Simulated scan of single mutants.
Amino acid sequence: MRFVHCSDVHLTADYRGLPLRRLGWRRWLALPELLAGGRAQAYRRAPQTLAAIAREAREHAADHFILSGDLTACALDSEFNAAREALGALVEDRGRCTVIPGNHDVYTPGSLRVGRFERYFGHLLESDLPEHCREGPYPFVRKVGAGAAVVGLCSARVPPVPGISQGFIGRAQLEGLAAVVADPRLAGRALLVVVHHAPLTPRGELAAGPWGLRDGAALCQLLPGPRHAVLHGHIHRRFHHAATPERPHLFGAGSSTFAGHEGYWVIQVEGGRVTGGRMQELAV
């Protein structure tokens, strides 16, 4: 079985054309990095790049497509709408597509309060095993074929101030995940657990500090060995840590649409185990 995994696509509105009163102070603080810092320019072609990744997923006959958060720059409706349009028909079928929110998709309390992510992608959060949901729709389970299941978690929280982007899953979701791992209906399936924040750094250390995953160690302890993989984004570097008897495979998808670093993972599953992955660069 073949899974395509991308992340941190950051479709970015034209912030120069938006009235400041509509943006709010959190987005005001982001404007220097977006505009003067060149971030908006780096993601100028993100819609076309995301559409190309979705197209390649179809051409590769991938069994499932996974996007592990940060669809937007700052959680505007226009950015979510652009992401959904770029994904095209792929995003209409939850059997073929999993999308979870990242911290940029809950950038403001208002975006979380009105359920802006759910407005565009909520249809993908329905679970095949809803009895394991503990925090809203999470963790949700998506059976894929006869040999795998995708499990969606939410680590994205509204930051106290921009720049503090630490994530946490929380006890309730972790308890739900433990029940998923032990569910006999999933025996014999590889479990691909999707979360936005990274449990480990590219060097293999616990990701801590203002940008890490606070309960990353607890997550890894629930998922020992090659039956399991954690697919994440947040850290804008593409890397893989192979599974050990104590922890799962970890696939960091980097930022799949960042100019000059466009790409994604193709992850292989055979016999109910994750057998490896291949980094795929995108020709643009």
Rank of each mutant, 00 (worst) to 15 (best):
Q41V: 11
L282W: 10
P184G: 03
G176L: 09
T49R: 14
T244Q: 13
G122M: 10
I66S: 01
H197L: 00
G272S: 06
V99K: 01
V106P: 00
V274Y: 03
P226D: 15
V150R: 04
G102W: 01
L87V: 02
R96V: 07
T72R: 02
G88I: 08
E135S: 13
V269I: 12
P32E: 08
F121E: 01
D105H: 04
E126M: 04
V9H: 01
A61E: 14
V150D: 00
H64K: 11
H228I: 07
S155R: 02
K143C: 12
W28I: 09
L124H: 03
L231M: 13
Q166A: 12
R55E: 15
A283R: 14
P210Q: 11
L29I: 07
L177M: 09
L192S: 04
L174K: 03
I235L: 15
I267L: 10
L23R: 02
A36H: 06
E175K: 12
E118W: 00
R278F: 08
R55Q: 15
R116C: 00
R96I: 06
F239P: 08
R247K: 13
W25S: 12
Q166Y: 02
G271H: 12
R185I: 08
G263T: 05
A187H: 12
A82R: 02
A62Y: 08
D63M: 03
G272L: 12
G260Q: 09
H132D: 05
R116N: 05
E33N: 13
L35N: 10
Q41F: 12
R273E: 13
E281D: 14
P226E: 15
P162N: 08
L87K: 02
G254R: 06
D77S: 12
L174T: 02
G115Y: 05
L90W: 11
R96G: 12
F117W: 09
G110K: 11
L206F: 13
P47A: 09
E56M: 11
H232V: 01
G145E: 12
G167P: 06
V158A: 04
P248N: 11
I169N: 04
G176A: 10
A243Y: 07
P184D: 12
A46Y: 03
H249I: 06
P245F: 10
E175D: 15
H60R: 13
G122P: 03
F168P: 03
S127V: 10
H123M: 07
V158G: 04
I53G: 03
Y264W: 15
A57Y: 02
F117P: 01
R203L: 14
V151L: 06
A178W: 00
L223Q: 07
F80G: 04
H5V: 07
